[in-house]
Design a protein around this nucleic acid. Structure first.
Lengths: 347, 347
DNA sequence: TTGTACGCGTTATCAA
DNA sequence: TTGATAACGCGTACAA
């Protein structure tokens, strides 16, 4: 499509017989500008259908008012809600949001980071791919003073802002909830261990077991991509165990729900034979029967908070130590767990 | 955050003792450039950590390699899948995707359109807000020769490319499926009638009834936002009816599933007392019990197809008549409908 | 094959 | 309060 000539500040200037500078100032409400000229410019701009060219301004100001969001997948309930939160806050503050999915691939993540840099985004919010183990591609932003905030799937030991939940504590509480409701042999579904969040959930699970005198058994931990198909596979593997578990703590809802359905098919009663606690509070959690008890993940708020943080960094005059923003989680008790036999001690 | 001096083609030029032009050409693989110089430039660029400034190039070339995506909500399964498809195709073709949600608000949609224009996106893919009745804000793109493709929630009588499904036919088939499985009193859940897609689904529903000798009854059509809460409300309203319906065709899965659950609570058997067909094939459709029969909406493919179309338009030398791309739907038969008593005639 | 000079649309600086 | 001029980083017509 051929480009059309568009209205610029000089068209307005010529029309009004003033300089481009004056128009620019009038439009950006500069203090040293006559009231009459200002009004005239604004009027003319409107009449002539002028819309500022953010790109050109950005080139000059060395800023684009754009935030890059780097996430593994868009079409997952948790992530799309997070993006929704980011977009909400960013838009209100006058920023655009550009999105790239890594599809959990390290290679794509690296490529996307470069694209963001090429587009001179003012800041980046990143949630890392499952595969990613080396973080050096983020140096692009760090070395060039581009604000960087990690959200949810953060890197370990990276000196950047992070917005996340307390995965260890959430997992500990969830596991202990199962224990307090009478479970003694508890299976854990987890994701790739190079993602800190899954490592921490697993650690919380392990710690809860040990604190309650239950031995930790590697064979009861199923690790993978946390997909629905994996839930079915895991369920089948569980049915092969010599002694069935009486509880399952899953690092996400998808795998939990599909495992649950598969176990139900095999005739097991939930929660009586096996209790379930998931993670995320996806829509499917409240639809499955029995409804899934789960750890609610404040997705929207993680997004909002990340956006606020990145904007704060973008506007900061000086650098300051990295912040760790931890958002609260909550166990949503539904029907896939039994009643507590021992009350959970207050925190 | 203060901006840092970044490597430009002139830094490379100075370093190598050549002109900026030469560097620019070497980097973009221009034909008239010496092999040695090219190699030297590429080498130096790599060493110095040069990454092109797409923004500056865009200003010069009057293109940004950016596609604006205007959708009502990000965090809905159908839409996030569509975006995923857009992003996939666009990224592969070297385009960035910037996203704005209108939250189904006309006002936000207008504001977002202006932002897109300000950012000089090369093209726009739009799925309209529920509220939108006036389409004049899209003239911004049309008048300025910015490619525009409507996806899914298209406008009526607009001379733009559209990517969508055959809503009328899909609704007709779904309703007829209910009829052929023995339903005679069929309720319809629909969305705002200013969105063509809902109007068409309703028309398909009505036509199927009439073609099969069943009178169309306005009182059996429930219109609204198609939310979960609405599903509960609709179910309660249905229970108040003098004579219960024996089938429900819903314009989305969310409202169908929640209504189903509510009716089950009231003791109704599904599909024996009431059959259900939804629309979209959201994840919840295959989780609810009984699993929901639904019209599958090729979300990912609508996204991919829209992206391909917009890129085609962006690169087109001349304008050509608007295209209407219609993607196939499919009834996914699950457990919320009874067996067909009369086979569906072949199309 | 290479370089000079200018333009893309805006803002910052300095002078008037 | 206003204006002339340069600069942001890159691409390109034209000249060499």
């Amino acid at each position: 499509m051929e480009k059309k000539k568009r209205v610029t500040i000089y068209d307005i200037a010529k029309h009004l017989g003033v300089s481009g500078t004056t128009v620019s100032r009038a439009l950006s409400d500069h203090h040293s500008i006559g009231d009459k000229t200002k009004k005239a410019v604004l009027q003319a701009a409107k009449e002539m259908g002028y819309i500022p060219n953010t790109i050109a301004a950005g080139l000059r100001k060395k800023q684009t008012n754009t935030i890059g969001v780097l996430i593994p997948w868009i079409n997952r309930p948790f992530i799309s809600s997070m993006i929704s939160g980011i977009e909400e806050v960013a838009n209100d503050a006058g920023y655009n949001v550009i999105i790239s999915q890594s599809c959990d691939s390290y290679k794509k993540e690296v490529a996307n980071a470069e694209t963001f840099f090429s587009n001179r985004v003012d800041g980046v919010i990143a949630s890392m791919a499952m595969e990613t183990e080396d973080f050096s591609h983020f140096n692009l932003f760090i070395d060039n003073d581009i604000a960087l905030v990690f959200a949810d799937r953060v890197g370990k030991n990276l000196p950047q802002d992070k917005v996340m939940i307390d995965n260890f504590a959430a997992a500990f509480e969830a596991t202990e909830y199962l224990i307090h409701s009478g479970c003694r042999k508890i299976v854990h579904f987890t994701g790739a261990p190079n993602r800190e969040i899954y490592k921490l959930r697993r650690a919380g699970y392990q710690d809860a077991l040990e604190k309650n005198g239950i031995p930790y058994d590697e064979k009861l931990v199923f690790s993978g991509l946390l997909s629905g198909e994996e839930g079915v596979r895991n369920a089948k593997a569980i049915l092969e165990l010599k002694e069935l578990p009486d509880g399952i703590f899953s690092a996400n809802d998808t795998v939990a729900v599909h495992a649950m359905i598969e176990l139900k098919k095999a005739g097991l009663k939930i929660p009586d034979d096996i209790s379930f606690i998931g993670f995320n509070d996806d829509p499917i959690a409240s639809i499955v029967e029995p409804q899934l008890t789960t750890v609610s993940h404040p997705a929207l708020e993680i997004g909002r908070s990340s956006a606020r943080q990145i904007i704060k960094r973008i506007n900061a005059k000086h650098s300051s130590p990295p912040e760790n923003i931890v958002l609260p989680t909550q166990i949503i008790v539904r029907e896939s767990t039994r009643k507590l036999v021992k009350s959970v001690p207050p925190k």
